[in-house]
């Protein structure tokens, strides 16, 4: 069994590479959707104590957008994409071709766009994982929630909590013009699937 507390630097590099390629795919998809040039920073792979995760998103009570899906196939597990509220406002307004207004009330179409955005971004990361590992991964339809960061993040924290006290995630910053948006991608393979992924990548024997 692989314990994320005990991942070595090589294994983290491999995960960072998945983050890199996934974020690259995501940036391309985002650019196509927005018909704009989208840049990104090199993603960061972070492994932190789960009690400290909400602080990264500006505090446990901050509203954030969470897009969650599960996947089956050669590996099983779930994935969560978290976007802070400001970034979500920027992304929706860009998709809708509107002036950016951080106080706008979202309607059903906005929420549906957000869910679709989540679908595309999570598929980008999962696609990178599938192509690097040659594993078959079938994602479910994603599910959207907007709530306190602590509450949203409790979902991956609980799943990681089955094996340890730390959470692994990939933080990516996308840049379009003068606007920066941050997205956080949590990949939560089942305990057995972690082994399968690392084996497929040739990291473990």
């Amino acid at each position: 069994m692989v314990d994320i507390d005990g991942l070595n630097s090589f294994e983290i590099d491999v995960l960072r590479e998945i983050g890199n390629i996934g974020a690259g795919n995501a940036a391309t998809a985002l650019a196509e959707m927005l018909s704009k040039r989208v840049n990104m920073h090199v993603p960061e792979v972070k492994i932190v104590d789960f009690k400290n995760v909400p602080e990264i998103l500006g505090g446990a009570e901050q509203p954030v957008v969470g897009i969650y899906l599960s996947f089956t196939g050669d590996v099983e597990g779930s994935a969560l994409l978290v976007i802070d509220e400001v970034s979500a406002h920027i992304l929706i307004d860009m998709m809708m071709g509107r002036r950016i207004d951080l106080n706008r009330q979202w309607n059903d179409i906005d929420l549906s766009a957000l869910q679709e955005l989540g679908n595309i971004l999570t598929s980008s990361y999962l696609g990178a994982l599938a192509s690097l590992t040659n594993l078959y991964i079938k994602p479910s339809i994603p599910c959207l929630a907007i709530d306190m960061a602590g509450a949203i993040l409790s979902v991956p924290a609980v799943e990681f909590g089955m094996t340890g006290d730390k959470v692994l995630f990939i933080e990516t910053e996308f840049i379009e013009g003068s606007d920066n948006v941050q997205v956080y991608f949590f990949l939560i393979p089942d305990v057995q699937s972690y082994d399968v992924i690392l084996k497929a990548l040739g990291v473990t024997e």
């Binding site: 899906l69 599960s70 779930s78």
Partner: peptide, 17 residues
């Protein structure tokens, strides 16, 4: 609470934790 309710796809035991 149950923060996410997946409409289809495999029912994850963890979602109703």
């Amino acid at each position: 609470a149950q923060m996410f309710a997946l409409k289809n796809g495999p029912s994850s035991n963890m979602l109703n934790i």
